[in-house]
């Protein structure tokens, strides 16, 4: 029998992060970030493709939620900090190697951007809207004229934010489960599909809904491909990564992952959408909500499982 014993010290969740340093805050933050990134990405995309008339929900209305999503996300992140008073330190340095760092910066850019973007559509939403100050009107005109520029900046930063939500974890090569290049793309794609789902849910234009359920279908396809790919990678990799994968293949996280994240969050909504595209009627919010929940589940499970996966020595 082999016995490994920590004789003194470290038997303390505050000292041993395998007993979770990150709680619910980080996964929530990642989910909201990804979701917002998804929405803004599509908004910018379809604006640039001149589809702002067809896909009004995507381009105009849904983005109006994103400032709130992002702010809630930031609040969650802030809540996770143990040394809150020093929050501002995030913005006294840029550490290119620290996803946390450029995630913080990306948010700093994209949050106001999302506000501005939404602001430029306020009058369309509420025709009688009046800005309190005249200079705001001029500002509005300015941005409306330069929407294309805004869109370009937004599409770039949305992608950064989206990828960041995945990179944040995969940067930690000390956690075998996160130590995979696939996590970045996976989270980006799942973020996009969440965004698409939200748009699909809130749009009242059948055409737009159809479009986005097609997009979603495609994205889910990619997600599932990436997941399979990820596990194949693990299995073909080192002892520790095989162990990490085992967390989902028979291990404690098997059920939550395959049932909630994969089946309810991807496979089932995919079927429902195919069903709908085949012409049968299914209320759009059902697959959408499933996808959103699956998204949350995915991030929670990856964050938690990742922390309990570690090198053994």
């Amino acid at each position: 029998m082999k016995e490994e014993l920590i004789v003194s010290g470290r038997m303390n969740y505050k000292v041993d992060p395998t007993l979770h340093i990150w709680g619910w805050e980080i996964p929530l933050y990642l989910f909201l970030g990804g979701l917002a990134a998804g929405v803004l990405f599509f908004a910018a995309l379809y604006y640039l493709r001149g589809k702002d008339k067809e896909y009004q929900a995507a381009v105009k209305w849904v983005p109006m939620i994103t400032p709130f999503l992002l702010v809630i996300g930031l609040i969650a992140l802030f809540y996770d900090l143990n040394h809150k008073l020093y929050f501002w330190r995030l913005y006294t340095s840029i550490n290119l190697q620290s996803p946390m760092s450029w995630g913080a910066w990306a948010l700093l850019v994209i949050t106001p951007l999302s506000v501005v973007w939404s602001a430029t559509y306020v009058r369309e939403a509420f025709p009688f809207w009046k800005w309190p100050f005249a200079w705001l009107d001029t500002l509005e005109d300015f941005f409306i004229k330069n929407r294309t520029v805004l869109a370009w900046i937004m599409i770039v930063y949305a992608s950064i934010l989206g990828i960041y939500t995945g990179i944040l974890l995969s940067a930690f090569n000390s956690r075998p489960l996160w130590n995979t290049s696939i996590l970045g793309p996976l989270f980006l794609v799942s973020g996009l599909s969440a965004g698409a789902a939200l748009i699909m849910m809130l749009s009242n234009n059948p055409l737009e809904r159809k479009r986005f359920s097609q997009i979603d279908l495609m994205l889910i396809g990619i997600e599932i491909f990436l997941i399979i790919h990820m596990f194949m990678g693990f299995r073909a990799s080192t002892e520790v990564q095989i162990e990490a994968a085992a967390l989902f293949l028979g291990g404690p996280y098997t059920l939550p992952f395959w049932i909630f994240a994969v089946f309810l969050g991807m496979v089932l909504p995919a079927f429902l959408e195919i069903w709908e595209l085949r012409g049968n009627h299914i209320p759009a919010y059902i697959p959408a909500i499933l996808i959103l929940c699956g998204n949350i589940a995915l991030r929670f499970i990856i964050v938690y499982a990742g922390q309990s996966s570690r090198y053994l020595y």
């Binding site: 006294t92 840029i94 550490n95």
Partner: peptide
């Protein structure tokens, strides 16, 4: 050295450097 800092953002910048 791959760790850029923004000088002059208040005290912070100095403290970082």
């Amino acid at each position: 050295r791959e760790f850029l800092k923004i000088a002059g953002i208040g005290l912070g910048g100095i403290a970082v450097t």
